[in-house]
């Protein structure tokens, strides 16, 4: 079907239409991501990038009016948000939520165990959890003190983003969606986060990186770059497409889409 030579893509989005409060945001989007690949979606504000991320994660308030999404062969849209996580999907959010009263560490352990339980695996042993957590925290540059603090509470913008990547490292998803993870990060933090993601790259894992700027993609080199304008992917190409966008901006594409 569709001329694809790989039998099953990790993520397959076909003719997706999504409305928010009755207003069409995504208007006929097709995207296929295979295991082992890093895809970048770039586009101006309001092009529907974050809507796509939320639809994939299962947030309420996003009405899929047409189209299908298959994740590892399953109908993603029929799954609850937590079922998607158990199946191996992870969204690093653009705006992580502050949750005072729940420690970062406790939350992480709950999340890890919830996913393990859903997969029929035993709970992680406290010692093993701590070892893994310390390693991951070091990788993304989260000091121990932030692990003991309440989840995202009083974290700087950059710390919140790093914490998202920490969660990703702990949950070991098959498909990770990074929604504007680069916004609010200085160059050192950006490099660190990219490095953490690069270490997680593997033939079994895919990444969908949503971003405004080509900056992140200098460190986190994508296999494919897609330009999203007004709810559609208007052009796809290799990493050089990102450089083209950096040089000329979105305007040529905006004109094309209009």
């Amino acid at each position: 079907m569709n001329g694809k030579d790989i039998p099953m893509a990790m993520l397959e989005i076909e003719k997706l239409h999504v409305s928010v409060e009755g207003k069409p945001i995504i208007r006929g989007l097709d995207l296929s991501v295979d295991a082992g690949e890093v895809h970048a979606i770039m586009g101006p504000n309001g092009s529907g990038k974050s809507t796509l991320a939320y639809v994939l994660a299962g947030r309420e308030g996003y009405e899929v009016t047409a189209g299908t999404i298959r994740f590892l062969g399953q109908d993603l849209l029929a799954m609850e948000p937590e079922e998607r996580v158990a199946a191996g999907l992870f969204l690093a959010m653009q705006y992580p939520v502050e949750i005072p009263g729940v420690s970062n560490m406790y939350f992480l352990r709950q999340a890890v165990n919830a996913v393990r339980k859903a997969r029929g695996e035993p709970e992680i042993k406290p010692g093993e959890f701590m070892k893994k957590l310390r390693e991951a925290a070091k990788l993304v540059g989260i000091p121990e003190e932030l692990l003991r603090r309440d989840l995202n509470t009083g974290f700087s913008g950059g710390e919140k983003k790093r914490n998202e990547i920490l969660q990703m490292a702990m949950l070991e998803p098959k498909l990770a969606i990074l929604d504007e993870t680069d916004s609010g990060l200085d160059i050192d933090a950006l490099r660190m986060v990219a490095e953490a993601v690069n270490r997680m790259r593997s033939p079994e894992r895919a990444f969908l990186v949503i971003t405004h700027y080509a900056r992140l993609l200098n460190f986190l080199v994508p296999d494919r770059v897609h330009v999203m304008i007004a709810g559609r992917i208007v052009k796809s190409g290799g990493r050089e497409l990102a450089d083209e966008l950096e040089a000329h901006g979105y305007e040529p594409f905006t004109a094309e889409a209009a």
Partner: peptide, 25 residues
């Protein structure tokens, strides 16, 4: 917040309990 927690794999009833606790705590 509920969505955030569910998007980390927590069942809704667990997320609700945790958020309620956190609100009070």
């Amino acid at each position: 917040a509920l969505f955030y927690m569910r998007a980390r794999g927590l069942a809704p009833e667990v997320a609700e309990a945790m958020l309620t606790y956190a609100f009070a705590a």
